[in-house]
Design a protein around this nucleic acid. Structure first.
Lengths: 188, 188
DNA sequence: CGTAGCATGTAAGTTGTTACATGATTCG
DNA sequence: CGAATCATGTAACAACTTACATGCTACG
Protein backbone atom coordinates (compact mmCIF):
# COMPACT_ATOMS: atom_id res chain seq x y z
CA UNK A 1 0.00 0.00 0.00
CA UNK A 2 3.00 2.28 0.26
CA UNK A 3 2.21 4.75 2.97
CA UNK A 4 5.65 6.31 2.93
CA UNK A 5 5.78 9.62 4.65
CA UNK A 6 2.77 11.39 3.32
CA UNK A 7 3.23 13.98 6.07
CA UNK A 8 6.59 14.87 4.60
CA UNK A 9 5.03 15.88 1.31
CA UNK A 10 2.14 17.67 2.95
CA UNK A 11 4.69 19.88 4.69
CA UNK A 12 6.76 20.38 1.55
CA UNK A 13 3.58 21.24 -0.30
CA UNK A 14 2.56 23.91 2.17
CA UNK A 15 6.05 25.37 2.12
CA UNK A 16 6.09 25.38 -1.68
CA UNK A 17 3.94 28.49 -1.74
CA UNK A 18 6.01 30.39 0.83
CA UNK A 19 7.89 30.09 4.15
CA UNK A 20 5.88 28.91 7.11
CA UNK A 21 6.31 27.78 10.71
CA UNK A 22 5.14 24.53 12.25
CA UNK A 23 2.33 26.38 13.92
CA UNK A 24 1.24 27.93 10.65
CA UNK A 25 1.40 24.62 8.82
CA UNK A 26 -0.96 23.18 11.37
CA UNK A 27 -3.23 26.18 10.98
CA UNK A 28 -3.19 25.81 7.22
CA UNK A 29 -4.26 22.20 7.56
CA UNK A 30 -7.12 23.13 9.83
CA UNK A 31 -8.31 26.14 7.88
CA UNK A 32 -7.75 25.14 4.28
CA UNK A 33 -7.15 21.41 3.91
CA UNK A 34 -9.38 20.24 6.74
CA UNK A 35 -11.94 18.46 4.55
CA UNK A 36 -9.31 16.13 3.08
CA UNK A 37 -6.12 16.34 5.16
CA UNK A 38 -4.96 16.47 8.75
CA UNK A 39 -1.69 16.74 10.64
CA UNK A 40 -0.82 16.88 14.34
CA UNK A 41 2.00 18.78 16.04
CA UNK A 42 3.53 15.48 17.07
CA UNK A 43 4.08 14.79 13.39
CA UNK A 44 4.96 18.25 12.17
CA UNK A 45 7.68 19.42 14.53
CA UNK A 46 9.89 16.31 14.46
CA UNK A 47 9.57 16.16 10.68
CA UNK A 48 10.58 19.79 10.24
CA UNK A 49 13.84 18.88 11.94
CA UNK A 50 14.53 15.85 9.83
CA UNK A 51 13.55 17.60 6.61
CA UNK A 52 16.01 20.34 7.51
CA UNK A 53 18.81 17.85 8.14
CA UNK A 54 17.97 16.22 4.81
CA UNK A 55 18.38 19.59 3.14
CA UNK A 56 14.83 19.70 1.81
CA UNK A 57 13.93 22.79 3.83
CA UNK A 58 15.88 25.45 5.73
CA UNK A 59 15.23 28.03 8.41
CA UNK A 60 14.17 31.32 6.94
CA UNK A 61 15.23 34.33 8.98
CA UNK A 62 13.59 37.04 6.91
CA UNK A 63 10.35 38.54 8.06
CA UNK A 64 10.52 37.56 11.69
CA UNK A 65 9.15 40.60 13.45
CA UNK A 66 10.36 40.93 17.04
CA UNK A 67 8.04 39.41 19.57
CA UNK A 68 7.17 36.70 17.06
CA UNK A 69 8.42 33.35 18.32
CA UNK A 70 7.52 31.44 15.19
CA UNK A 71 10.32 29.75 13.29
CA UNK A 72 9.63 29.97 9.57
CA UNK A 73 11.02 27.34 7.22
CA UNK A 74 11.48 27.67 3.47
CA UNK A 75 11.63 24.90 0.90
CA UNK A 76 14.98 24.39 -0.89
CA UNK A 77 15.55 23.55 -4.54
CA UNK A 78 16.18 19.92 -3.59
CA UNK A 79 12.99 19.89 -1.57
CA UNK A 80 11.00 21.26 -4.45
CA UNK A 81 12.43 18.67 -6.80
CA UNK A 82 11.53 15.85 -4.46
CA UNK A 83 8.02 17.23 -4.05
CA UNK A 84 7.58 17.40 -7.80
CA UNK A 85 8.72 13.81 -8.17
CA UNK A 86 6.21 12.71 -5.58
CA UNK A 87 3.43 14.66 -7.25
CA UNK A 88 4.14 12.81 -10.49
CA UNK A 89 4.00 9.35 -8.95
CA UNK A 90 0.69 7.46 -8.69
CA UNK A 91 -1.12 7.96 -5.41
CA UNK A 92 -2.20 5.20 -3.05
CA UNK A 93 -5.48 5.24 -1.20
CA UNK A 94 -5.57 4.78 2.51
CA UNK A 95 -7.45 1.67 3.60
CA UNK A 96 -11.06 2.62 4.37
CA UNK A 97 -12.22 2.78 7.98
CA UNK A 98 -15.68 4.23 8.25
CA UNK A 99 -16.72 3.70 11.83
CA UNK A 100 -20.26 4.95 11.31
CA UNK A 101 -20.93 2.40 8.58
CA UNK A 102 -19.40 -0.33 10.71
CA UNK A 103 -21.90 0.50 13.43
CA UNK A 104 -24.78 0.72 10.98
CA UNK A 105 -23.81 -2.65 9.56
CA UNK A 106 -24.08 -4.40 12.92
CA UNK A 107 -27.02 -2.39 14.26
CA UNK A 108 -29.43 -5.30 14.25
CA UNK A 109 -27.87 -6.21 17.59
CA UNK A 110 -29.18 -3.03 19.23
CA UNK A 111 -31.98 -1.87 16.95
CA UNK A 112 -32.44 1.46 15.20
CA UNK A 113 -32.54 3.85 18.16
CA UNK A 114 -28.81 4.23 18.92
CA UNK A 115 -27.87 4.57 15.29
CA UNK A 116 -30.50 7.25 14.68
CA UNK A 117 -28.64 9.55 17.06
CA UNK A 118 -25.40 8.93 15.27
CA UNK A 119 -26.72 9.48 11.78
CA UNK A 120 -28.35 12.65 13.04
CA UNK A 121 -25.05 13.88 14.46
CA UNK A 122 -23.33 13.01 11.22
CA UNK A 123 -25.96 14.93 9.28
CA UNK A 124 -25.43 18.01 11.42
CA UNK A 125 -21.67 17.86 10.96
CA UNK A 126 -21.97 17.39 7.22
CA UNK A 127 -24.35 20.32 6.95
CA UNK A 128 -21.84 22.54 8.73
CA UNK A 129 -19.16 21.30 6.35
CA UNK A 130 -21.45 22.05 3.43
CA UNK A 131 -21.68 25.65 4.56
CA UNK A 132 -17.94 25.95 5.04
CA UNK A 133 -17.22 24.53 1.59
CA UNK A 134 -19.73 26.84 -0.03
CA UNK A 135 -17.98 29.77 1.59
CA UNK A 136 -14.59 28.48 0.53
CA UNK A 137 -15.75 28.18 -3.05
CA UNK A 138 -17.16 31.69 -3.24
CA UNK A 139 -13.98 32.94 -1.56
CA UNK A 140 -11.97 31.38 -4.38
CA UNK A 141 -14.28 32.67 -7.06
CA UNK A 142 -14.13 36.19 -5.70
CA UNK A 143 -10.43 36.33 -6.45
CA UNK A 144 -10.00 38.66 -9.41
CA UNK A 145 -6.61 37.56 -10.66
CA UNK A 146 -6.20 34.11 -12.14
CA UNK A 147 -3.72 31.64 -10.70
CA UNK A 148 -3.26 28.00 -11.57
CA UNK A 149 -3.03 27.17 -7.87
CA UNK A 150 -6.58 28.41 -7.44
CA UNK A 151 -7.86 26.17 -10.21
CA UNK A 152 -6.51 23.09 -8.42
CA UNK A 153 -7.77 24.28 -5.07
CA UNK A 154 -11.22 24.71 -6.55
CA UNK A 155 -11.13 21.13 -7.84
CA UNK A 156 -10.51 19.81 -4.35
CA UNK A 157 -13.34 21.90 -2.94
CA UNK A 158 -15.66 20.56 -5.58
CA UNK A 159 -14.98 16.95 -4.68
CA UNK A 160 -15.48 17.91 -1.06
CA UNK A 161 -18.86 19.37 -1.91
CA UNK A 162 -19.98 16.43 -3.98
CA UNK A 163 -19.08 13.98 -1.23
CA UNK A 164 -20.68 16.17 1.37
CA UNK A 165 -23.91 16.45 -0.60
CA UNK A 166 -23.96 12.70 -1.08
CA UNK A 167 -23.59 12.17 2.66
CA UNK A 168 -26.32 14.66 3.50
CA UNK A 169 -28.73 13.04 1.08
CA UNK A 170 -27.91 9.59 2.46
CA UNK A 171 -28.42 10.74 6.05
CA UNK A 172 -31.84 12.13 5.24
CA UNK A 173 -32.91 9.04 3.35
CA UNK A 174 -31.54 6.77 6.04
CA UNK A 175 -33.06 8.65 8.95
CA UNK A 176 -36.45 8.19 7.40
CA UNK A 177 -35.91 4.46 6.99
CA UNK A 178 -34.64 4.18 10.53
CA UNK A 179 -37.68 5.98 11.91
CA UNK A 180 -39.91 3.54 10.06
CA UNK A 181 -37.96 0.64 11.50
CA UNK A 182 -38.38 2.13 14.94
CA UNK A 183 -42.15 2.44 14.53
CA UNK A 184 -42.40 -1.07 13.20
CA UNK A 185 -40.44 -2.31 16.19
CA UNK A 186 -42.82 -0.60 18.60
CA UNK A 187 -45.96 -2.08 17.08
CA UNK A 188 -44.61 -5.64 17.28
CA UNK B 1 -10.41 11.43 18.79
CA UNK B 2 -10.74 8.16 20.60
CA UNK B 3 -9.46 5.50 18.25
CA UNK B 4 -9.68 2.74 20.84
CA UNK B 5 -9.54 -0.68 19.29
CA UNK B 6 -11.91 -0.39 16.40
CA UNK B 7 -10.53 -3.67 15.11
CA UNK B 8 -11.74 -5.37 18.25
CA UNK B 9 -15.32 -4.44 17.51
CA UNK B 10 -15.04 -5.23 13.83
CA UNK B 11 -14.07 -8.77 14.85
CA UNK B 12 -16.81 -9.03 17.46
CA UNK B 13 -19.25 -7.75 14.88
CA UNK B 14 -18.35 -10.39 12.33
CA UNK B 15 -18.53 -13.11 14.98
CA UNK B 16 -21.92 -11.86 16.16
CA UNK B 17 -23.61 -13.52 13.19
CA UNK B 18 -21.84 -16.85 13.65
CA UNK B 19 -18.48 -18.53 14.41
CA UNK B 20 -15.61 -17.67 12.13
CA UNK B 21 -11.86 -18.11 11.83
CA UNK B 22 -9.23 -15.41 11.41
CA UNK B 23 -8.95 -16.30 7.78
CA UNK B 24 -12.68 -16.04 7.27
CA UNK B 25 -12.88 -12.73 9.07
CA UNK B 26 -10.31 -11.35 6.68
CA UNK B 27 -12.27 -12.75 3.76
CA UNK B 28 -15.46 -11.21 5.04
CA UNK B 29 -13.76 -7.83 5.21
CA UNK B 30 -12.54 -8.15 1.66
CA UNK B 31 -15.72 -9.50 0.16
CA UNK B 32 -18.42 -7.69 2.08
CA UNK B 33 -17.08 -4.71 4.00
CA UNK B 34 -14.34 -3.72 1.55
CA UNK B 35 -15.90 -0.40 0.52
CA UNK B 36 -15.86 0.91 4.09
CA UNK B 37 -13.64 -1.33 6.24
CA UNK B 38 -10.32 -3.14 6.16
CA UNK B 39 -8.30 -5.41 8.43
CA UNK B 40 -4.94 -7.13 8.03
CA UNK B 41 -3.83 -10.50 9.41
CA UNK B 42 -1.29 -8.73 11.57
CA UNK B 43 -4.20 -7.16 13.40
CA UNK B 44 -6.64 -10.03 13.39
CA UNK B 45 -4.65 -12.97 14.70
CA UNK B 46 -3.09 -11.30 17.74
CA UNK B 47 -6.44 -9.77 18.63
CA UNK B 48 -8.25 -13.09 18.45
CA UNK B 49 -5.88 -14.30 21.15
CA UNK B 50 -6.37 -11.36 23.43
CA UNK B 51 -10.12 -11.32 22.93
CA UNK B 52 -10.16 -14.97 23.93
CA UNK B 53 -8.14 -14.30 27.07
CA UNK B 54 -10.53 -11.46 27.88
CA UNK B 55 -13.41 -13.92 27.60
CA UNK B 56 -15.15 -12.03 24.82
CA UNK B 57 -14.79 -14.91 22.37
CA UNK B 58 -13.95 -18.61 22.65
CA UNK B 59 -12.77 -21.38 20.37
CA UNK B 60 -15.64 -23.21 18.76
CA UNK B 61 -14.93 -26.87 18.07
CA UNK B 62 -18.15 -27.76 16.32
CA UNK B 63 -18.22 -28.08 12.59
CA UNK B 64 -14.52 -28.49 11.99
CA UNK B 65 -14.42 -31.04 9.22
CA UNK B 66 -11.17 -32.98 9.11
CA UNK B 67 -8.61 -31.54 6.76
CA UNK B 68 -9.85 -28.07 7.65
CA UNK B 69 -7.14 -26.21 9.53
CA UNK B 70 -9.25 -23.20 10.31
CA UNK B 71 -9.84 -22.35 13.96
CA UNK B 72 -13.34 -21.00 14.38
CA UNK B 73 -14.12 -18.60 17.21
CA UNK B 74 -17.54 -17.82 18.63
CA UNK B 75 -18.64 -14.70 20.48
CA UNK B 76 -19.53 -15.09 24.15
CA UNK B 77 -22.36 -13.43 26.06
CA UNK B 78 -19.87 -10.96 27.55
CA UNK B 79 -18.50 -10.24 24.12
CA UNK B 80 -21.94 -9.58 22.74
CA UNK B 81 -22.72 -7.24 25.59
CA UNK B 82 -19.55 -5.25 25.04
CA UNK B 83 -20.26 -5.05 21.33
CA UNK B 84 -23.75 -3.76 22.01
CA UNK B 85 -22.39 -1.11 24.34
CA UNK B 86 -19.94 0.04 21.70
CA UNK B 87 -22.67 0.15 19.06
CA UNK B 88 -24.65 2.49 21.29
CA UNK B 89 -21.80 4.93 21.86
CA UNK B 90 -21.25 7.85 19.48
CA UNK B 91 -18.78 7.11 16.71
CA UNK B 92 -15.66 9.10 15.97
CA UNK B 93 -14.47 9.86 12.49
CA UNK B 94 -10.98 9.02 11.43
CA UNK B 95 -8.94 12.07 10.47
CA UNK B 96 -9.14 12.57 6.71
CA UNK B 97 -6.15 11.71 4.52
CA UNK B 98 -7.01 11.89 0.87
CA UNK B 99 -3.72 11.58 -0.95
CA UNK B 100 -5.21 12.21 -4.37
CA UNK B 101 -6.65 15.56 -3.29
CA UNK B 102 -3.36 16.48 -1.67
CA UNK B 103 -1.65 15.94 -4.99
CA UNK B 104 -4.32 17.82 -6.89
CA UNK B 105 -4.01 20.71 -4.46
CA UNK B 106 -0.29 21.16 -5.13
CA UNK B 107 -0.37 20.30 -8.82
CA UNK B 108 0.54 23.77 -10.01
CA UNK B 109 4.14 22.71 -9.32
CA UNK B 110 4.05 20.08 -12.05
CA UNK B 111 1.14 21.08 -14.28
CA UNK B 112 -1.92 19.08 -15.26
CA UNK B 113 -0.32 16.11 -17.04
CA UNK B 114 0.70 13.95 -14.06
CA UNK B 115 -2.56 14.48 -12.25
CA UNK B 116 -4.62 13.56 -15.30
CA UNK B 117 -3.21 10.05 -15.15
CA UNK B 118 -4.09 9.76 -11.49
CA UNK B 119 -7.63 11.04 -11.82
CA UNK B 120 -8.10 8.67 -14.72
CA UNK B 121 -6.88 5.74 -12.61
CA UNK B 122 -9.18 6.82 -9.80
CA UNK B 123 -12.10 6.99 -12.23
CA UNK B 124 -11.43 3.46 -13.43
CA UNK B 125 -11.25 2.13 -9.89
CA UNK B 126 -14.44 3.91 -8.88
CA UNK B 127 -16.27 2.56 -11.91
CA UNK B 128 -15.27 -0.96 -10.94
CA UNK B 129 -16.50 -0.28 -7.44
CA UNK B 130 -19.75 1.06 -8.83
CA UNK B 131 -20.32 -2.24 -10.60
CA UNK B 132 -19.50 -4.25 -7.50
CA UNK B 133 -21.87 -2.22 -5.36
CA UNK B 134 -24.66 -2.54 -7.89
CA UNK B 135 -24.22 -6.29 -7.79
CA UNK B 136 -24.15 -6.29 -4.02
CA UNK B 137 -27.40 -4.34 -3.88
CA UNK B 138 -29.25 -6.63 -6.25
CA UNK B 139 -27.84 -9.59 -4.33
CA UNK B 140 -29.42 -8.21 -1.18
CA UNK B 141 -32.68 -7.38 -2.87
CA UNK B 142 -32.97 -10.87 -4.32
CA UNK B 143 -33.19 -12.30 -0.83
CA UNK B 144 -36.75 -13.43 -0.34
CA UNK B 145 -36.94 -13.56 3.41
CA UNK B 146 -36.74 -10.34 5.39
CA UNK B 147 -34.04 -9.84 8.02
CA UNK B 148 -33.17 -6.69 9.90
CA UNK B 149 -29.46 -7.33 9.27
CA UNK B 150 -30.14 -6.99 5.55
CA UNK B 151 -31.82 -3.63 6.00
CA UNK B 152 -28.72 -2.24 7.70
CA UNK B 153 -26.41 -3.82 5.18
CA UNK B 154 -28.39 -2.19 2.41
CA UNK B 155 -28.00 1.18 4.07
CA UNK B 156 -24.22 0.87 4.02
CA UNK B 157 -24.25 -0.16 0.37
CA UNK B 158 -26.35 2.85 -0.46
CA UNK B 159 -23.89 5.28 1.07
CA UNK B 160 -21.15 3.47 -0.77
CA UNK B 161 -23.00 3.99 -4.02
CA UNK B 162 -23.75 7.63 -3.41
CA UNK B 163 -20.12 8.38 -2.60
CA UNK B 164 -18.95 6.34 -5.54
CA UNK B 165 -21.28 8.16 -7.93
CA UNK B 166 -20.11 11.49 -6.57
CA UNK B 167 -16.49 10.52 -7.19
CA UNK B 168 -17.18 9.31 -10.71
CA UNK B 169 -18.97 12.53 -11.60
CA UNK B 170 -16.16 14.59 -10.11
CA UNK B 171 -13.52 12.66 -12.03
CA UNK B 172 -15.31 13.22 -15.31
CA UNK B 173 -15.81 16.91 -14.66
CA UNK B 174 -12.24 17.31 -13.48
CA UNK B 175 -10.67 15.40 -16.35
CA UNK B 176 -12.33 17.77 -18.75
CA UNK B 177 -11.03 20.80 -16.89
CA UNK B 178 -7.56 19.30 -16.72
CA UNK B 179 -7.53 18.65 -20.46
CA UNK B 180 -8.46 22.26 -21.06
CA UNK B 181 -5.64 23.37 -18.78
CA UNK B 182 -3.27 21.15 -20.69
CA UNK B 183 -4.29 22.65 -24.04
CA UNK B 184 -4.00 26.15 -22.68
CA UNK B 185 -0.52 25.33 -21.41
CA UNK B 186 0.57 24.12 -24.82
CA UNK B 187 -0.59 27.24 -26.63
CA UNK B 188 1.34 29.57 -24.30
C1' DC C 1 0.68 40.85 38.25
C1' DG C 2 -1.44 36.97 36.84
C1' DT C 3 -4.04 34.58 33.56
C1' DA C 4 -4.88 33.16 29.00
C1' DG C 5 -3.26 31.99 24.79
C1' DC C 6 0.77 31.50 21.62
C1' DA C 7 4.40 28.51 19.79
C1' DT C 8 7.62 25.00 20.06
C1' DG C 9 8.74 20.78 21.39
C1' DT C 10 9.10 15.73 23.49
C1' DA C 11 7.98 11.09 25.41
C1' DA C 12 5.20 7.26 25.76
C1' DG C 13 2.15 4.51 24.06
C1' DT C 14 -0.88 2.50 20.51
C1' DT C 15 -2.13 1.15 16.10
C1' DG C 16 -1.31 -0.72 11.91
C1' DT C 17 1.62 -2.54 7.92
C1' DT C 18 4.87 -5.45 5.85
C1' DA C 19 7.44 -9.14 5.19
C1' DC C 20 8.52 -13.30 6.47
C1' DA C 21 8.06 -18.20 8.44
C1' DT C 22 5.70 -22.49 8.84
C1' DG C 23 3.36 -26.56 7.79
C1' DA C 24 -0.46 -28.66 5.73
C1' DT C 25 -3.18 -29.93 1.68
C1' DT C 26 -4.54 -30.16 -3.09
C1' DC C 27 -3.73 -31.12 -7.69
C1' DG C 28 -1.48 -31.66 -12.16
C1' DC D 1 6.83 -35.32 -6.55
C1' DG D 2 6.69 -30.39 -6.95
C1' DA D 3 4.16 -26.15 -7.07
C1' DA D 4 0.49 -23.55 -5.58
C1' DT D 5 -2.61 -22.24 -2.29
C1' DC D 6 -4.55 -22.42 2.34
C1' DA D 7 -4.31 -20.90 7.11
C1' DT D 8 -2.08 -19.43 11.05
C1' DG D 9 1.12 -16.84 13.07
C1' DT D 10 5.16 -13.44 14.44
C1' DA D 11 8.68 -9.78 14.44
C1' DA D 12 10.20 -5.47 13.08
C1' DC D 13 9.12 -1.37 11.91
C1' DA D 14 6.62 2.95 10.72
C1' DA D 15 2.99 6.06 11.57
C1' DC D 16 0.25 8.57 14.54
C1' DT D 17 -2.03 10.32 18.85
C1' DT D 18 -2.04 12.13 23.21
C1' DA D 19 -0.65 14.31 26.99
C1' DC D 20 2.49 16.89 28.91
C1' DA D 21 6.32 20.50 29.50
C1' DT D 22 8.17 24.96 28.65
C1' DG D 23 8.62 29.73 28.29
C1' DC D 24 7.06 33.73 26.20
C1' DT D 25 3.81 37.65 25.41
C1' DA D 26 -0.44 40.23 25.44
C1' DC D 27 -3.80 42.21 28.02
C1' DG D 28 -7.15 43.48 31.51
Amino acid sequence: MDRTNRTKFAILGVLSSGPSSGYDIKKFCEEVLAYFWHESYGQIYPLLRSLESEGLIRKDKKGTAKGDRRIPYAITATGKKELQEWLSKPFSEQPPRNELLLKVFFSNLVGPVPVIAQVQAYLDAQKRLQGALKEALSGIEEQTEYSEQMVYWKMTVKLGMRLCNARVAWCQETLQELEELKEKGKSV
